[in-house]
Design a protein around this nucleic acid. Structure first.
Length: 789
DNA sequence: TGTAAAGACCTTTTT
DNA sequence: GGTCTTTACA
């Protein structure tokens, strides 16, 4: 065993050595949080605590795996394999697998991913004869999810005045009924969604004292990583589990709370000291990751948020390079700049691919970077695209396996009942569903007894064949392992053959994916794990299926591969890179347009920016583009307000180009909200005139010699110079919904003009307006301030 | 019943 | 620009 206390600072050691009683570790970015957590667990084990009695909850499977490995390394043995360590979802799912029957679920319950869940919501909405334009399934699903995470059940939801008012206002008064029907349907299907894994575990502990007692005794020591990202359901579970021994250790950083949209609340971390009056608090404030420039800049940014746990994050690292601010003309130029710079840095500073990360706010931004990197021949790994298990061919195959394990799983059944085609068409399926609902039995049971319900003879034959086939698979599962059954299913259903015969590029890829799935099942079966009783853990198909639903695509990618990493900032939490490109720093994108309507959302966006800045060890680039394509349409955004929050002394603006920003055509953009007016100080230097002086204040003086903007920036298109217009004294934007073709209007910037035509969707109308001074322009009415004359 | 063309709607962020 | 859904037609 190595001397694990050696490389720790005083505070870290204090956290590691604190053995019994509640402990809260406030761990600033890069302060060695994972190191403390793993050393603490190793220390517990080294001082005699049995690994079976330790529960460690992490945010990702990846983090769990890494911690396990580190602990094994410290201890020099493999005792760590007996730890209960994993994400909230996977650990709870594992426990529920042996306890679900208490709640009336089959132990082989299916876990519905977001797609499945939305599909159930959609089915319910249709059955209730509600309009799915008003009741958008994903919208309703999100609302249900939020309710569950806040431990608000259907009845409570229906009785809550505030929630009812909200639904009424958004014209969706039936949301509560949908919620209720959705919950019942999932139960009938023997299925739990992601939120249920938390919720049902909570219900188990709450309503079954013997279960509570069992797990309280088992988990003598509980550790929770990323505590700032836990939601009320998780909070209550931990409170219950920890009540007996009170050996609860939470680690978190309120400044990095970025999962509010998933119900996470900083309250939990603030509440901890109130729940446990004798809680010991340790603050880790020394940062070992970043240069002073980067860390200081991050500290300044986060100061703009109110209400935090006071922290003073510092570092002994060198000052380092300034942060480079880069402006490009388009999103493609942004991609090109980043790829070029990576190439240049590799040569100049001897970095390799794996030293770089490109981090963005939304997944859709990845395209430009992928293209540029591919063109340059730079190897990259993209995280967060469609995961392996959400590919169509995999979902189809998995649906067969799901129906074998849990015939009540209606989503799986609907997916494969006529795939490959076997003459059970839409009419038949609708009818079976109708019968199932009327008789309150599962669709599978309807099929099993199809002859009673009077299907036509041809159909009956087809149904019978299908039922017999599935039943033969199920009985095969009784005496053969999951891998053999899966191979058999592939053969018997012709799924594999069909894909094998498809020689198109996609067909070959699909065939390979199926082979990979079969391999993964084989691997699962062949890797025995031992539980606390010494028994080999469940290697059945049911356990396999539950497990894969909870995998993310990050789990099967090698973080050490020598590739540039592309991912969202959310996905990058907990990671660090020598060189980071924080890209797409534009209003409406980051902060995202969806999150600028309240102070809370905006502060979360700012924490997200804090997270991306603090991912960088040595070098940080902050980039934004003048224009980018969105929905195939060119849009123009102002640079992000967060750029202004980076102190000038740590910023190198010479790459941001000189001259005024964002001149030329384009639909007006943010910059006029109440928030902007309050936070940008008077004068209106942003939304008003783009004087050269304003630009100089923001970007520093224009470059004196050659433009510092290299060749990748496409020359400015011949956009006619805007003839500045001074809005009339009484300028007040009109309600644009009344705007019609032919109207005469006044635009804040472009002056007077006439509407030529209005196009685009009702949701996002675009007007073509011919201005007296500035020619024809397309204006997005949602953003523009227009006065109808 | 199944396939091809046309159309709607879309993008936060994730277990 | 891309996916999912609706519609037209064989």
């Amino acid at each position: 065993m190595i001397d694990y206390l050696k490389g720790l600072n005083d505070k870290q050691r204090e956290a590691v050595l604190h053995k019994d009683g509640p402990l809260m570790i406030v761990a600033g970015a890069g302060s060695g949080k994972t190191k403390v957590l793993t050393t603490r667990i190793a220390h517990l084990m080294a001082s005699g605590v049995d690994a079976f009695n330790i529960l460690a909850l992490t945010f990702t499977n990846k983090a769990a795996k890494e911690m396990k490995e580190r602990i094994e390394h410290i201890l020099g043995n493999s005792d760590a394999r007996n730890l209960y360590i994993g994400t909230f979802h996977s650990v709870f799912a594992r426990i529920l697998r042996s306890e679900a029957h208490r709640l009336g679920y089959p132990n082989n319950f299916t876990i519905y991913d977001t797609d499945d869940a939305k599909s159930v919501v959609k089915a319910v909405i249709n059955e209730m004869n509600l309009d799915d334009k008003t009741y958008k399934p994903s919208n309703i699903y999100n609302r249900i999810s939020s309710a569950k995470n806040a431990l608000v059940g259907p009845i409570e939801y229906a009785n809550d005045y505030g929630l009812q008012q909200e639904d009424l206002r958004s014209n969706r008064p039936a949301t509560a009924q949908i919620y209720d029907a959705y919950v019942k349907r999932c139960f009938k299907n023997g299925a739990m969604d992601f939120d249920d894994l938390l919720l049902k575990f909570y219900e188990l502990l709450k309503h079954f004292p013997e279960a509570l007692s069992k797990y309280q005794h088992k988990f003598k020591y509980i550790l929770i990583d990323e505590y700032q990202d836990t939601n009320p359901a998780q909070y209550e579970v931990i409170k219950l589990l920890g009540a007996m021994h009170e050996n609860v250790c939470v680690v978190g950083d309120d400044a990095q709370s970025i999962y509010g949209f998933r119900g996470a609340t900083i309250e939990n971390i603030l509440q901890f000291q109130k729940d446990y009056e004798d809680a010991h608090v340790v603050k880790l404030e020394q940062n070992y990751r970043s240069t002073q420039s980067i860390l200081n800049a991050a500290n300044e940014v986060i100061k703009n948020n109110k209400g935090q746990i006071p922290k003073d994050l510092w570092t002994e690292n060198s000052e380092g390079e300034k942060i480079r601010l880069v402006r490009t003309m388009t999103d493609n130029d942004e991609g090109k700049y980043v790829a070029d710079t990576i190439q240049e840095q590799k040569l100049r500073n001897h970095y390799s691919n794996k030293d770089f990360a490109i981090l963005y706010r939304t997944n859709s931004q990845s395209r430009a970077f992928e293209e540029a990197l591919r063109r340059m021949g730079i190897a990259y790994t993209m995280y967060g695209g469609t995961s392996f298990y959400s590919r169509k061919e995999i979902k189809d195959f998995v649906a067969y396996l799901r129906i074998i394990v849990n015939p009540k799983d209606e989503e799986a059944l609907k997916r494969i009942i006529n795939y490959p085609a076997r003459g059970i068409g839409k009419t038949t399926i609708d009818r079976a569903l109708l019968v199932a609902n009327n008789q309150n039995i599962s669709m599978w049971e309807v099929l099993e007894q199809a002859q009673i319900f009077g299907f036509k003879s041809n159909t009956l034959e087809a149904i019978d064949g299908f039922v017999t086939m599935i039943k033969s698979f199920s009985s095969m599962l009784k005496n053969q392992n999951a891998s053999d059954v899966a191979v058999h299913v592939g053969k018997q259903t012709n799924l594999v053959k069909e894909l094998f015969n498809d020689k198109s590029t996609e067909g070959v890829a699909r065939y390979e994916n199926i082979q990979e799935l079969l391999n993964s099942i084989k691997e699962w079966v062949e890797s025995p794990d031992v539980d606390e009783t010494g028994e080999v853990t469940d290697k059945g198909l049911g356990a396999y299926l539950q497990q894969i639903t909870l995998l993310t695509d990050a789990d099967d990618k090698d973080p050490n591969a020598d590739t540039v990493k592309l991912m969202t900032i959310h996905a990058a939490k907990g990671l660090e890179f020598s060189c980071v490109f924080a890209v797409g720093l534009e209003e409406m994108l980051f902060p995202n347009a969806m999150s600028i309507n309240s102070k809370e959302e905006l502060e979360e966006e700012r924490r997200l920016f804090y997270v991306v800045v603090t991912r960088a060890k040595a070098r940080l680039w902050v980039t934004y583009a003048n224009t980018r394509y969105r929905f195939g349409q060119l849009v123009q955004n102002e640079p992000s307000r967060f750029i202004d929050e980076l102190p000038d002394q740590y910023l190198d603006r010479s790459f941001a180009g000189g001259g005024a920003r964002n001149q030329g055509s384009g639909w007006g953009s943010g910059g006029n909200s109440a928030y902007d007016r309050m936070h940008r100080g008077g004068g209106g230097g942003w939304s008003g005139g783009n004087s050269a002086k304003d630009a100089e204040k923001l970007y520093g003086p224009p470059p004196s010699k050659k433009p510092a903007v290299p060749s990748y920036v496409t020359p400015k298109p011949a956009t006619p110079k805007v003839v500045e217009h001074k809005p009339s004294e009484d300028f007040v934007p009109s309600d644009i919904s009344a705007l019609a073709e032919g109207n005469k209007v006044e635009h804040q910037k472009f002056g007077f003009g006439q509407v030529v035509k209005i196009e685009g969707s009702a949701h996002n109308p675009v007007a073509t307006i011919k201005f007296d001074q500035n020619g024809e322009k397309k204006i997005m009415l949602n953003y523009a301030k227009l006065r109808i004359l």
